[in-house]
Design a protein around this nucleic acid. Structure first.
Lengths: 181, 181
DNA sequence: ATTTTATGTCAGTGTTATTGACATATTTCA
DNA sequence: TGAAATATGTCAATAACACTGACATAAAAT
């Protein structure tokens, strides 16, 4: 301990306050999530840069590709951004023929979003590099964990999501399961 | 699972495949990682907003808190941002007395970074809400996975990191293990 | 003594996000 | 039918966070 022993002395009033924050089993996972996400978005970033797109474009393209017929409102709820932020990137993608809008049939106020062939191709390129990383991660020998690595990682990540939101996420992802059938 | 099990193990390059991207077992994890990270950063964001800080400030504060004596160069390598980007947020944190710089003893060119009590307290508040979410996630009943959930999630996330980078990440995190002893 | 390293700083720019206000078309409801 | 709610589009202004390239200083290494 070559460091000045700075007492926590924060708003918490628990006993043995340690130096650099309090130790908890989840602390390592927090950092790993940072590192994992950092590299996870790095792969597609390199591809997107060649098209003059950014992460925002990627997110829109990804969800429209995987959930064809998504409405603007649904997309806003997924991405948790404002209409204006979405509109900017969506306009780019539409103008450059990666996504098309179609007026809803039952509700003609809605704009249903679909990928063009061009859009599907780019989305495919992007998901490929990410799938590659995830697949590799799942295939890694987990020293200590048995074979349920994939499932427990999936469960872990799902459990990371706001409990009130999980049903919505499950519902969304169930749409794919149905449309793939 | 209702997904077509296209076990794409390895770096195979299939044809551009189906309409809405190609189905792969990792695809769900990709989306879950997006949702998980979205909510994961949402917690601290709310606290930071009260201080007029953003995510960039959080990242700096977090790593300085957990690895006291970090140099600028080390921090730049961790965060993968430019000197200028770091300097802006670091200046804020120093001016407002959350972080202090000390000239290195062995190498007086270096500026070793430390949290003040104020900084440690805020870092503690921030890590608390994230630890809470992670701890809760680890405690969730994993339907299908046994007890090795925590370990396999940790392994999964570590495996998500660039292989060439993993040693550096492990080395970094080992610093904590040592200083906590 | 020269070079390299660690850091700081300037000027300019770009992406992604925000808020608030307002407009239009369509659906729903009283 | 008329009023209200909904889905979307758009304007203007702003902020957070990142980038590049250039240049400066101090200290260490050769």
């Amino acid at each position: 301990m070559t460091f000045p022993a700075t007492q926590t002395a924060g708003s918490d009033a628990h006993g043995p306050a340690e130096t650099a924050s309090s130790q908890s089993p989840g602390d390592d996972l927090i950092e790993l999530l940072f590192f994992a996400y950092r590299d996870f978005v790095g792969d597609p970033d390199r591809i997107l840069a060649q098209y003059g797109f950014g992460r925002a474009h990627h997110r829109v393209l990804h969800f429209v590709d995987r959930y064809p017929g998504l409405t603007i409102a649904e997309l806003l709820d997924i991405l948790r951004i404002t209409k204006q932020s979405l509109n900017r990137v969506l306009k780019d993608l539409i103008e450059q023929d990666y996504i098309v809008q179609k007026t809803g049939t039952s509700d003609r106020r809605q704009r249903l979003l679909f990928c063009t062939d061009r859009g599907t191709a780019l989305a495919g390129d992007l998901i490929r590099v990410q799938t590659h990383r995830v697949t590799r991660a799942l295939a890694e020998p987990a020293p200590g964990a048995g074979e349920g690595g994939a499932l427990s990682a999936q469960n872990f990540l799902l459990a990371m999501i706001e409990p009130e939101e999980r049903a919505a996420v499950r519902r969304l992802m169930a749409r794919r399961a149905r449309s793939a059938a």
